[in-house]
């Protein structure tokens, strides 16, 4: 990085740290914070989508669909997320490749499972064997997002399911009295009104999602915990220009500060959204706002 970094052994402390903290390895560490934030930014809406699908299914009129929705919510929530993360990514990857295999290579005569091996035709590989490295990385990232979205989608589904039931029933009766169809009632009455009820649960879920990211390394994403371990471990002078002792504590301290700060910022932002959403609403929070503003009781 800096010109004076050519011979780290001779450097005074301050420059040594300047060089040490700007090695390629550290750049990977800094970049991984971006990876985590990007994953959160993509996962949150995806999980919400899954949650919406799950909640809608759980209250569908079609019985099998309702069972499916409820089973999805109950099953995923009953199991520790870590258990999913440990085998889900491989399972998802194999499922995708198997489906592509069925479509792209219908005349393939060898079995897909050969002993322990999972073998699909070359055209069905995800990503293709000829793809450049970044495609592989992106695909891995995509699988991680999908796994997170499936797990947290179940939690979101549960929140939204509760929120849909919290919408006063009179609203739905009124819609029916106006002759709206089931579909119309759902989209025009229920969905727009449920968000106020869902927001506290969803903001909690967001906090939870933030705190689940240290498990990302299980999904094969080079996340901040991976790098903190890698960088913090004792560095032997034979393998690095910057030998040091066991510094894991300092790196984990940095992670701790990051998480606490991120939580705090999220708290403040969500408070603000909640205040804005409650404004003028006929809920307790809306009522309280009116009172403090000195409006009519």
């Amino acid at each position: 990085m800096f010109n004076f970094c050519t011979d780290p052994d001779t450097l005074p402390q301050l420059q040594w740290f300047a060089c040490y903290l700007t090695t390629g390895k550290h750049m990977g560490f800094y970049a991984s914070f971006g990876t985590v934030l990007l994953l959160l930014a993509i996962t949150a809406p995806t999980a919400l989508l899954f949650g919406f699908g799950g909640a809608s299914a759980a209250r569908a009129r079609l019985l099998p669909l309702r069972w499916f929705g409820k089973a999805y919510i109950a099953l995923v929530r009953g199991v520790p997320d870590i258990a999913f993360f440990l085998f889900f990514v491989i399972a998802l990857d194999q499922a995708f490749e198997w489906m592509r295999h069925q479509v792209k290579c219908p005349d393939w005569d060898q079995p897909v499972r050969q002993g322990n091996d999972f073998v699909v035709c070359a055209a069905a590989k995800m990503p293709l064997g000829t793809s450049p490295q970044w495609v592989h990385e992106t695909y891995g990232f995509f699988l991680a997002v999908l796994t997170f979205a499936i797990v947290f989608g179940a939690f979101a589904a549960n929140v939204l399911y509760g929120a849909m039931r919290a919408v006063p029933y009179a609203q739905i009766e009124t819609a029916e009295a106006y002759g709206m169809s089931h579909r119309q009632t759902f989209w025009r009455i229920l969905v727009p009104q449920m968000w106020v009820f869902a927001l506290p649960g969803l903001s909690n879920l967001w906090m939870v999602l933030i705190k689940a990211t240290p498990l990302l390394f299980l999904l094969g994403v080079e996340d901040i915990v991976y790098w903190a371990r890698e960088l913090g471990g004792t560095a032997n002078p034979r393998f690095t220009d910057y030998p040091h002792g066991d510094w894991r504590m300092w790196y984990f301290l940095a992670l701790l500060v990051f998480y606490l700060g991120f939580t705090r910022i999220s708290e403040l932002a969500l408070d603000r959204i909640m205040r804005r959403l409650s404004h003028g609403q006929a809920t307790a929070a809306g009522e309280a706002q009116r009172r403090t503003a000195g409006g009519p009781p």
Partner: peptide, 10 residues
């Protein structure tokens, strides 16, 4: 705040 704001892992 400290216990709810940081991952159990850490």
């Amino acid at each position: 705040f400290v216990f709810r704001g940081s991952p159990l892992f850490i």
